[in-house]
């Protein structure tokens, strides 16, 4: 399986040992993103990095696990509740004059979204490159209204999510 090196900038401490060991100079870029057109997936940089900031990701992702229909149904109920909690917290936070309550509601808004994202990962939307994502984008483009960000959705379908 062909793999590519990616750098986690949150861990990178700019020791730059990857620059010395990379046979093609793929990690020597100004924006700190390892150049996928140069990377040959040898893993030398990942092994050498003292901060463990580089890992190898597969170039093509495996198929997603199929989710049971009943799991999807109960997850959906939970997801809708989290979405509603997020929206209500947001709207209440923008109205209140109490600083403590405003901060608490903002935290609940953010937390509800984080939990909802977790639910979505287990509802068939784990991988951006998956067929589920592709079908959803195609479906949304089909029935898009004027305000739907068509350019972004089309760009993702055409290039961004290519395996």
């Amino acid at each position: 399986m062909k793999r590519l090196a990616v750098r986690n900038l949150r861990l990178c401490t700019k020791d730059c040992i990857c620059l010395y060991v990379c046979p093609t100079g793929a990690s020597d870029t100004e924006d700190s993103i390892i150049d996928p057109s140069k990377c040959i997936g040898c893993g030398a940089c990942a092994e050498a990095c003292p901060s463990k900031a580089i890992s190898l990701v597969p170039l093509t992702y495996p198929d997603q696990q199929v989710k049971d229909n009943n799991v999807l149904k109960v997850n959906k109920k939970l997801s809708q509740s989290k979405a509603k909690a997020e929206k209500i917290s947001h709207d209440l936070a923008s109205k209140t004059k109490e600083d403590g309550l405003r901060r608490l509601l903002k935290a609940i808004e953010r937390s509800s979204r984080l939990m909802n994202e977790d639910i979505m990962r287990e509802s068939g939307y784990m991988l951006p490159q998956s067929l589920n994502t592709r079908h959803l984008l195609e479906d949304l483009l089909d029935k898009a209204d004027d305000r739907f960000p068509k350019i972004e959705a089309q760009r993702l379908l055409d290039q961004g999510l290519k395996n």
Binding site: K82, A83, R113, N116, M120, P128, P149, R155, L156, G160
Partner: peptide, 26 residues
Amino acid sequence: GELAAIFSNLARGLEKQSKLKESKDM
């Protein structure tokens, strides 16, 4: 609300793959 969470989750996934432009689109 569900779509908002689906896409922000996928944006995070793309960010972790260092696909920053794609993450922004998501």
